[in-house]
C-alpha cells in the first residue's frame, strides 16, 4: 500500500503540529467499505512491537505521531479485526486504510 497519499479531510491536526518535522500516520478504519467508529487502532513498529493505540472517530478516522520507518496499523472491532502496513520515508502526513472483517 502506498504510504504517501495526499492530505485529505480527516481528523484535524492540533494547532502547532509542523509536518516538516513530525511524522503523522493517519487514515480510516473500514468495514465493507464503510467507515467504522469505535475501533481500537494499534500502531505496531517494524518488529511488531506495540507502540500506541487510539480509538477511531465516528467517521472511522485515526492518527498517530510516529517516526520515519515501517509500521503496521492493526484495528480491533466487534465486527472483526484487520491490519495494514505503511512506510513513512520521512516527516509529513502518511495515510493508510485498514479494513476489518
Amino acid at each position: 500500500m502506498d504510504g504517501c497519499g495526499a492530505p485529505e479531510q480527516g481528523v484535524p491536526l492540533p494547532a502547532g503540529v509542523n509536518l516538516d518535522e513530525q511524522t503523522v500516520l493517519a487514515g480510516k478504519v473500514l468495514a465493507g467499505g464503510t467507515p467504522v467508529g469505535g475501533a481500537f487502532v494499534r500502531l505496531l513498529d517494524s518488529s511488531g512491537e506495540f507502540t500506541a493505540e487510539v480509538v477511531s472517530s465516528a467517521e472511522g478516522d485515526f492518527r498517530f505521531f510516529a517516526a520515519p520507518g515501517g509500521w503496521t496499523v492493526r484495528a480491533l472491532h466487534r465486527q472483526g479485526n484487520g491490519q495494514a502496513e505503511v512506510t513513512a520515508a520521512g516527516p509529513g502526513l502518511h495515510t493508510v486504510e485498514v479494513a476489518v472483517a
Partner: peptide, 19 residues
C-alpha cells in the same frame, strides 16, 4: 515506555505530539 521512547527516538507515546 515503548522501545522508541526508551531509546530516545520519541518523547511521548505515538498518539501524542512529540514536543
Amino acid at each position: 515506555r515503548s522501545p522508541d521512547e526508551f531509546a530516545g527516538k520519541l518523547l511521548a507515546p505515538a498518539h501524542l505530539p512529540q514536543e
